[in-house]
């Protein structure tokens, strides 16, 4: 929902609480110093406004006491802020006991989230509440940045090296993941959701036994048609980042009118977009590249089940 509230960002981690405390200190200090300095200037402007030409003004080239005090006061305040910021920061990034490790790979324009227990998600992440988490990141192509505003932490994912992001979530709920390092094309579409769940539920989720309290997009609710489920997957599996359903062009070809159409490939061949073509394009996207589009799409092998593919194809068929 759009709003003009000043603060509509939840705080859902230990670092977020610490962040908010320092932020409030900074805001108060800033407002006080702003009012002191600019307020004084404003009073001077009003009080000493020119009433007639050639007024005499006193010659005050300096006042060492005032200058020294102002420098001293500024130094003390910024020193406090520096130390506080450093203290909190070193706590944010310090290794914790009993960390749960999650691997994240960035690529244009999606996040792949891997769990040691074998689960792999795309643009979606489950973490247990109350347990320190260490996200180990890298990138396949260009530099990305894994940013969870509700946790007040971010870290670049750099190709060719590993970087770490640490947090301890302390409120259950769903929060946004953004890419915060410009990575071209659909940079703003490189977003996802982190689900903070109770530790018990997290274990259940790892074991494949967890049902989210609200049906997650794409989960099989009994009343949904196959195409409706496909629509949910279209969004949750991030097809939406690169493929439109209204005929306009993004990174990849649109889905509108795709099924049954003749597709020209970059090697000059033409194929008909039937079920087999659509399936292949999902699990092995590099096999056939549509003419005029970059070979950009990630492989979804293992990320979507056969049921999911059927649902997606059913959905694409509805887009005439």
């Amino acid at each position: 929902m759009s709003s003009l509230a000043l603060n509509f960002l939840p705080a859902a981690s230990v670092s977020a609480d610490k962040f908010n405390l320092l932020l409030h200190f900074l805001i108060v200090t800033s407002i006080v110093s702003f009012v002191l300095c600019i307020g004084a200037g404003f009073i001077f402007v009003v009080k000493y406004r020119r009433r007639r030409d050639n007024e005499h003004t006193p010659y005050i080239p300096h006042n060492y006491l005032v200058e020294f005090l102002s420098i001293f006061a500024t130094s003390v305040v910024v020193a406090i802020i520096f130390l506080w910021g450093w203290y909190d920061y070193s706590d944010f990034i310090a290794p914790k006991l009993g960390e749960y490790e999650i691997n994240v790979i960035g690529q244009q324009w999606s996040w792949t989230v891997q769990y040691a227990e074998g689960k792999t998600l795309m643009n979606e992440m489950y973490v247990p509440r109350g347990r320190p988490v260490r996200v180990i990141m890298t990138s396949k192509d260009v530099t990305h940045d894994f940013f969870i505003p509700a946790f007040r932490v971010k870290q670049d994912a750099v190709p060719g090296q590993y970087t770490n992001l640490r947090f301890t979530a302390n409120k259950t709920g769903d929060y946004d993941i953004f890419c915060a390092q410009y990575c071209g094309g659909a940079h703003s579409g490189m977003i996802g959701i982190v689900h903070v769940v109770e530790p018990d539920d997290f274990q259940k989720w790892l074991d494949g036994m967890y049902r989210a309290p609200v049906a997650a997009a794409g989960a099989a609710a009994p009343t949904m048609t196959l195409a409706e489920r496909g629509h949910g997957l279209y969004q949750s599996k991030t097809c939406v980042t690169c493929h439109t359903i209204d005929g306009s062009r993004l990174i990849g070809p649109t889905f509108k009118g795709l099924y049954g159409s003749k597709v020209e490939l970059n090697d000059g061949q033409t194929v008909v977009a039937d079920e087999n073509y659509l399936r292949e394009s999902i699990v092995a996207p590099m096999a056939k590249i549509v003419k005029g589009y970059p070979p950009q799409m990630p492989m979804f092998t293992g990320l979507v089940s056969d049921e999911d593919i059927n649902a997606l194809i059913a959905y694409i068929k509805t887009l005439k």
């Binding site: 670092s15 610490k18 962040f19 320092l22 932020l23 900074l26 802020i81 520096f82 506080w84 910021g85 450093w86 203290y87 909190d88 920061y89 944010f92 940045d145 940013f147 505003p149 007040r152 932490v153 971010k154 915060a180 390092q181």
Partner: peptide, 10 residues
């Protein structure tokens, strides 16, 4: 301030 920049950066 480092801890603040963790959120505000970019």
């Amino acid at each position: 301030a480092l801890s603040i920049d963790m959120h505000f950066q970019a």
